[in-house]
Design a protein around this nucleic acid. Structure first.
Length: 289
DNA sequence: TAACGGGGTTGTAGCCAGGC
DNA sequence: GCCTGGCTACAACCCCGTTA
């Protein structure tokens, strides 16, 4: 069995692809990689570490390398596994940088900004506003937004159904009063023009196709200049919504359901005590060297 | 020809599950 | 309850094709 075939069989398409690239990088940079020893693998990882790779990335590289030697062993090309029990000491930082998040007032500001205007193409001004509203009121991920269908909306009951994603639970969320009219206008005025291919997806591109995901980031990008000290992304908006909700409600369980987190541990990462908040602010403006 | 979207590539971060 | 390993989604970037 060839390596590519082995990876595809063992992992998902995406992971197999990533691991394939990482293994290629490893074998290109390691002399006689197929017969490499424990110290050769450490040397390679150290090299990546000095290049500034984050702990999470190093763990991913090691997982790919382990898969490579699993394949060599399984296919009879090698008898031993040089790094089967290798564990990295690099710790992955799971903390959310709460000091870089946005307040509810700042987020509402996004919805009040004029939309980008592009000539000679179908208007997507309302579509962009709908996307912004789903980010700042429901804290959806890009994938959540892309997967939305018209039937997931219930404007009469002011709710929206968010489908289950790989790592997030399904949930039904309330729509903000400001969204009802906005979404209705999008459905009546813009979407019929964009929907020449008769798809059920809610968010469509000006090329008449369902939104693939890259467009969500592009909707957010023009507003980055409003917050020069922070990094405005779709993900940062979601994190802000969750953190603000936790701050206001202090009820982890309801915030967990809102965010779609499978584990309350994930939601807890967004919680921050006053001391931690203060420390974060000090570190941001007066970093200790 | 400019502007845009789509798709591929690459590196990073989020999330979950399981072990200790 | 914390830590770690593993998987995958996301963001940034780039290039190419399409459209006006």
């Amino acid at each position: 069995m060839e390596l590519k075939q082995y990876l595809t069989k063992r992992f998902t398409k995406r992971t197999a692809h990533c691991y394939g690239l990482m293994i290629e990088s490893y074998t290109n940079q390691t002399r006689n990689a197929a017969q490499a020893k424990y110290k050769d693998i450490l040397h390679y990882l150290e090299k990546r570490r000095t290049e500034g790779r984050q702990a999470g990335t190093l763990h991913t590289y090691l997982a790919a390398i382990k898969a490579y030697y699993d394949w060599l062993k399984k296919s009879g090309r090698r008898k031993d596994h040089p790094c089967k029990h290798l564990r990295l000491k690099d710790k992955i930082d799971h903390r959310i940088s709460v000091q870089d998040l946005f307040t509810s007032t700042e987020l509402e500001l996004l919805l009040e900004q004029p939309s980008r205007e592009i000539n000679k193409l179908p208007s997507i001004r309302l579509r962009d506003k709908v996307i912004i509203s789903l980010l700042i009121y429901q804290g959806l991920t890009t994938k959540n937004i892309v997967n939305l269908e018209v039937k997931d909306l219930n404007l009469e009951q002011a709710t929206i159904y968010i489908k289950k994603a790989t790592t997030l639970n399904a949930r039904t969320l309330e729509l903000h009063p400001k969204q009802i009219m906005l979404i209705n206008r999008y459905l009546v005025e813009e979407r019929p023009i964009l929907n020449s291919k008769q798809t059920d997806k809610l968010i469509l591109t000006r090329r008449y196709k369902p939104e693939s995901g890259s467009g969500v980031g592009k909707v957010v990008k023009p507003y980055k200049k409003l917050f020069p000290d922070k990094d405005l992304t779709a993900l940062a908006i979601r994190q802000s919504v969750i953190a603000n909700l936790l701050k206001a409600e202090k009820d982890i369980r309801s915030v967990q359901v809102f965010a779609g987190h499978k584990s309350p541990m994930t939601t807890e990462r967004y919680q921050q005590t006053g001391i931690e908040e203060l420390t974060a602010a000090v570190m941001k403006f007066h970093p200790l060297k």
